[in-house]
Nucleic acid binder design. Structure first.
Length: 424
RNA sequence: GUGAUUGUAGCUCAGCUGGUUAGAGCGCCUGAUUGUGGCUCAGGAGGUCGCGGGUUCGAGUCCCGUCUUUCACCCCA
């Protein structure tokens, strides 16, 4: 029996981890500059958290959750987290984070679990980085979150993206618009496809999202939610757009952008890339003022956030030719031993130099000098030091620069400082 | 869940209508006169042809099942 990864899961191998670290470091760096702190929550939660938070009619909750009982006789139901926002809000409420500071700004880099059929840019265990800004109802928060997300992509060098922007208004607006949309669609009901007919009652806004080309014209001519906005949402949206203009963040208004999770209100946004195939969303987010109350808060808790798929970002980095430029770190020096006695010396010296901060390689296979040199070259070491009986007796060492092929004789006591200055 | 698609050395792939010990490139290892890498040359290791059945004198090649890969629908990051 050969073991292998479960369908929809992936190993991140040593050859790829540099790229992952590069993405994570870039994200952390931007988050830090915006004053966001990291939050880490458990990978599993009470199933009800997601039922309440995400919405029971959504596909995520309806058919994509990994739900299990901690033991056969237990009443409890647990679920591997399919997204982070509900967990973050749960932590915010549980620890009364809002009582300590009026605005709580957190980010995460986490793995999530959804039992979907895998395809390009979609896995059953996948990674997201994202941020939540909790406590401000003002458009400044929306603008900042969007700008922060865009800055990460910008610093990673991602081009060919489109930022889509829309506003869903407040809850009243959505209710009102829902009726308006249904009234518009009702005379055309027979023309709708099966999926859209299904959505007509349950979630008519999703019909706008349909990829069916036959419905294109119908959807184009549908009444737009932006024209139905309440006054507060309208001016909120205008202010968000003004800030984005000021920041130089480019966007397009997309009337069809209706985010899938129930808790969104007002601002909704999505960053799409043409490099990605059918799953074209690199990241997305929006305002979710209603979530806190859904999870049991006494009053409305205004909040806005975004989430980005790391595997999808990887695809975009790949097609932009950026991923190949991120190389794994290379050793400063390879210590090459020519005899058993020399091997003892290089082991001790390697240990000492590593404490000094150098990246030092040695051959663990006791191979020939030639093989050790080959290894040094393969690893991309800057220097090789060849250590044999002569060196140990005379205290004079051959320091070879593998990048230039220059070799010179150095006194033992000067080796470390020479290598340090030349690799700094 | 539905519909397609893939599966041969570590990697990328050949293998014609079923026929003797399954190949290439890259990578890996060793060597090219005894203490020196990268290029070149020579040699070498490495494969239950996803797995299980079946057809056949004979299957990597045909059939069935199963798992897996990839892509799309659905949905989403």
């Amino acid at each position: 029996m050969k073991f292998q990864t479960i369908t929809g899961t992936k190993d991140i191998l040593p050859s790829e981890s540099s790229l992952w670290q590069h993405i994570e470091q870039t994200a952390r760096s931007v988050f830090k500059r915006f004053g966001y702190s990291e939050i880490r929550t458990p990978v599993f939660e009470d199933t009800n958290l997601f039922l309440r938070g995400i919405g029971e009619t959504t596909d995520i909750v309806g058919k994509e959750m990994y739900t299990f009982k901690p033991s056969a006789e237990s009443e409890e139901s647990l679920t591997l987290r399919p997204e982070m926002t509900a967990s973050v809000m749960r932590a915010y409420l549980q620890h009364s984070l809002g009582a300590q500071s009026p605005v709580v700004k957190v980010y995460y880099i986490s793995e999530l679990f959804r039992k979907e059929k895998p395809q390009k840019g979609r896995y059953r265990q996948f990674w997201q980085f994202g941020a939540e800004c909790i406590g401000s109802a003002n458009p400044e928060a929306d603008a900042e979150v969007i700008a922060m997300m865009m800055m990460i992509y910008d610093e990673l060098g991602i081009k060919n993206t489109t930022l889509k922007l829309n506003s869903l208004g407040d809850i009243e607006t959505r209710k009102r618009y829902r009726t308006i949309l249904q009234d518009y669609l009702r005379p055309h009901f027979d023309k709708l496809d099966a999926v859209s007919k299904e959505r007509f009652e349950k979630n008519p806004l999703r019909i706008l999202d349909s990829k069916n080309p036959d419905l294109k014209e119908l959807i184009e001519n549908a009444p737009r939610i932006l024209e139905c906005l309440d006054e507060v949402s309208k001016s909120h949206f205008e202010t968000v757009k003004t800030y984005l203009d000021d920041f130089g963040v480019k966007y397009v208004i997309d009337h069809r952008l209706v985010r899938g999770l129930d808790y969104y209100s007002r601002t909704a946004f999505e960053l799409v890339s043409s490099d990605l195939g059918a799953q074209d969303a690199l990241g997305g987010g929006g305002r979710y003022d209603g979530l806190g109350e859904q999870l049991g808060a006494e009053k409305e808790i205004p909040a806005v956030g975004f989430a980005s798929g790391i595997e999808r970002l990887l695809i975009a980095l790949e097609s932009a030719g950026i991923s190949e430029k991120i190389q794994p770190p290379k050793p400063d020096v390879m210590l090459v031993a020519q005899s058993p006695l020399a091997r003892g010396w290089i082991m001790k010296t390697a240990q000492a130099w590593r404490k000094e901060g150098l990246t030092v390689e040695t051959d663990l296979l006791a191979r020939s000098l030639k093989a050790q040199m080959r290894e040094a070259n393969r690893l991309g070491a800057t220097f090789a030091v060849i250590v044999g009986e002569n060196e140990l007796q005379t205290g004079k060492f051959q320091l070879k620069n593998l990048l230039t092929s220059e070799q010179k004789e150095i006194q033992q006591e000067d080796l470390l400082s020479e290598i340090k200055t030349r690799t700094a």
